[in-house]
Design a protein around this nucleic acid. Structure first.
Ligand SMILES: [Zn+2]
Ligand SMILES: [Zn+2]
Ligand SMILES: [Zn+2]
Ligand SMILES: [Zn+2]
Lengths: 170, 170
DNA sequence: ATAATTTAAGTTACACTATAACAAAACATA
DNA sequence: TATGTTTTGTTATAGTGTAACTTAAATTAT
């Protein structure tokens, strides 16, 4: 087993993750002449509070606390923007959102989601991509968007809690 | 390009698909001593009306027409049963359900979904499975459930409508 | 600078998806 | 038939997401 990604390292320096994510976001938006407004940046920061997907409605209280409007459209607009810029991904199977650790070139992640602790890794997954592309090409299907979400147990949760079907919130 | 799956053959004998699906379902349920009740069978039949994923609420009117209760729990219960038996899959990215063309041994499909006509193919996808399993194993992640949903253009819709972002209903 | 245009945010209301909880009915077993 | 189990009926509500219109802010043009 190789070195674990940060998502599966409970003790890593997560402030660094947050800092890097915000820095990259500012850089990309500047480069693309897109406006990373205070609301958008706050939502991105909230999403990066952990490596666990967060539901849109979980973000609303923090928006209210920061003095912004906290009706659903506010957060969905921010999330739409962040998704369009590739700064955030939506996890369909959880109706939740997670920060992208390597935004920039447009890409489709392959997500490993721990059902015990919710920690989620976004893999680059070239072999997975290739396998999908080959299968699709074989049928003449033109791919526009891929969703690969794998639920299971991360290395840290296998000893603690091998029993299926529960979830620690956040 | 090889022979297309039935989902991408607009003129295939779909009555045969329906008939086979129901036959397999009856066989499997009998074998497992599970009750394929009238509601459950009707829901399965409705799902098999096409090779396109259907939302749960789209099934309710037909349940009402057939004289059954048509409140949401009715259809969700039937869908839960059918999913548990592996007769139906849920497409997370569409909040919709589709019949499984090869139920039996428990499996996870890889779905190719046409955004123009909604036709959906479930691939066996051994290479995709392998690629995912390898990536996960490399990190010591234990897989319990996989979601692979690919959206794009099927062979039939590439000439007609190559422009992104629309949908023909049902 | 000022006005016109574009973009983003505030606000209200609602649509769509899914489940909780409990009562009634149907089914299986003894 | 009596009993326990599973399924269905029913009502209500939770959770997720968007439409539509207004106001405010930022950008661009005059
Ligand atoms: Zn981190
Ligand atoms: Zn975990
Ligand atoms: Zn068919
Ligand atoms: Zn198509």
């Amino acid at each position: 087993m190789s070195k674990q990604p940060l998502s599966f390292q409970p003790e890593h320096d997560h402030d660094h993750c947050i800092h890097e994510a915000l820095k990259k976001a500012r850089g990309l938006c500047a480069e693309r002449k897109q406006r990373l407004t205070p609301i958008r940046e706050l939502v991105l920061q909230l999403i990066w509070k952990s490596h666990k997907p967060l539901g849109a409605y979980e973000l609303l209280p923090a928006l209210a606390d920061a003095g912004f409007n906290s009706a659903p459209p506010t957060v969905y607009r921010a999330l739409d923007f962040l998704q369009t810029q590739g700064l955030v991904h939506r996890i369909s199977s959880l109706n939740a959102f997670i920060g992208c650790p390597h935004p920039g070139p447009s890409h489709q992640g392959c997500f490993l989601i721990c059902r015990a602790c919710n920690s989620t890794v976004e893999l680059e997954s070239a072999p997975v991509q290739n396998a999908i592309h080959n299968s699709a090409a074989h049928l003449g299907f033109i791919i526009e968007q891929e969703t690969v979400e794998v639920v299971g147990l991360c290395p840290n949760c296998q000893s603690n809690d091998p029993s299926p079907a529960q979830r620690e919130p956040e």
